[in-house]
Write a protein that binds this DNA or RNA. Structure first.
Length: 390
DNA sequence: GGGAGACCTAGTAA
DNA sequence: ATTACTAGGTCTC
């Protein structure tokens, strides 16, 4: 279970007027001290003293075919949202703490736990959910041109791309490099806990995402002690780089939403810790770059299986990365990133339960190389087990 | 350009 | 009980 994490101590000057959160200071343990020494303990957490909100579920006019929570939130776009009950997902958008669930008819409903303004919360939510974009319409196009997509779409309807806050997205994917989901989540939880506490739902604590200034008060060593490993310096360096932007780092990030994908990727890549994969994630998940393709090993497998088989067996080099991205874009067009999202989800082990077995394993190759060697544990021993490099 | 290693860490497979 | 390897990569020679 998650537990409250102590957070590093901010230097004396409070950059922003944090409401009501008291921080106990303590001296920095640059010392030997054991592994666990945490720098400071946050005082007991009480929710902000905002006006009490009568919690009630409010229906949104969004069908499950447009938004499936289970296919959108736990699939690697964000590590900030938690499954707080079997059918409910909870997260923070700006300063709003919100839960989502499906109603009986499948439509999505929301509940505001904490917010300075319910009206703003709703519009922030709609923006976050990217509701201006019709999933079913774009999928019709994909399905028409790709029979495999059409089949998968039957089972994976509502796999949507969110429109996250750019800074939040950037920091999250900085944590993601060469890492696994469990640990990424822990790291993101740590970063989140630096922000203002908003409330607790289903045993999880929720926080506003910390500001750039707040992040800048955390040292590389603090992050390392929190288990970030070499990514600690990425975060420090990126925060610093953002702060040095004339006009402000947040504004700089926001301005990328108006730019072309290549410019966006180039700009992001100047930040330490941001390579092609991470840049594409940020571009797709927060900067309106709907045809950005985050090419990782999974996507590489998909691509070499269905899109550019002539490259099967090759090693994934940066150049081939862009070749893969190009292949996706020429097949799926300006929303290629959304198409890729569905194909990616279909590869996740967690989806095996809802996909028929025919999708589990790699389709039998004419090459008998990949003989089914799974004798023990059923057909799905590991579907992703094409060896990475041959 | 492209290839090789190093880099943090927790979990799992030999 | 060690060792090797992997996991939504990036950086530096």
């Amino acid at each position: 279970m998650k537990r409250r994490r102590p957070i590093p101590q901010p230097p004396s000057t409070p950059p922003t007027p944090t409401l009501l959160k008291t921080l106990v200071s303590n001296s920095k343990p640059t010392s030997n001290s054991s592994k666990k020494p945490m720098i400071l303990i946050k005082t007991p957490q009480t929710p902000p003293p905002t006006t009490p909100i009568s919690p009630k579920w409010v229906p949104l006019n969004i069908a499950k075919s447009e938004l499936s929570l289970a296919l959108t939130f736990p699939t690697g776009q964000t590590f900030r949202w938690k499954q707080t009950t079997p059918l409910q997902y909870t997260g923070v958008i700006g300063s709003h703490l919100i839960s989502l669930k499906h109603l009986q008819n499948g439509d999505v409903a929301y509940l505001i736990h904490q917010s300075p303004s319910e009206e703003n919360a709703r519009s922030a939510l709609l923006d976050f959910l990217n509701v201006g974009i019709s999933l079913s319409e774009m999928w019709e196009v994909f399905k028409a041109s790709d029979s495999r997509f059409a089949e998968l779409a039957q089972y994976l309807g509502g796999a949507r791309v969110l429109r996250q806050d750019p800074l939040e997205c950037l920091i999250q994917f900085l944590c993601s490099s060469n890492n696994n989901i469990g640990r990424i989540t822990k790291m993101v939880d740590f970063v989140s806990s630096l922000g203002n506490y908003l409330g607790s739902v289903g045993g999880f604590d929720f926080y506003e995402f910390p500001s750039l200034d707040r992040l800048s008060m955390v040292s590389e060593e603090d992050f390392r002690e929190a288990g970030f490993g070499y990514r600690a310096k990425y975060i420090i360096g990126t925060v610093k780089a953002l702060q040095s932007k004339s006009g402000g780092g947040i504004e700089w990030l926001a301005s990328l939403r108006e730019m072309d994908l290549q410019e966006v990727v180039d700009a992001l890549s100047t930040l330490p810790g941001v390579g092609p994969k991470v840049a594409a994630c940020i571009a797709l998940f927060s900067l309106d770059q709907h045809h950005a393709i985050p090419v990782d090993t999974h996507v590489w497998q998909i691509a070499t299986r269905y899109l550019i088989p002539e490259l099967a067996g090759a090693r994934l080099t940066p150049k081939l990365c862009s070749r893969v991205a190009d292949a996706f874009v020429s097949k799926y067009g300006k929303y290629a990133g959304w198409a890729q999202t569905l194909l990616f989800i279909a590869e996740l082990p967690s989806q095996k339960t809802i996909l028929p077995p025919k999708f589990w394993a790699i389709e039998e190759n004419k090459d008998t190389n990949i003989k089914a060697s799974t004798t023990g544990n059923g057909p799905c021993g590991s579907s992703l087990s094409i060896t990475k490099s041959c």
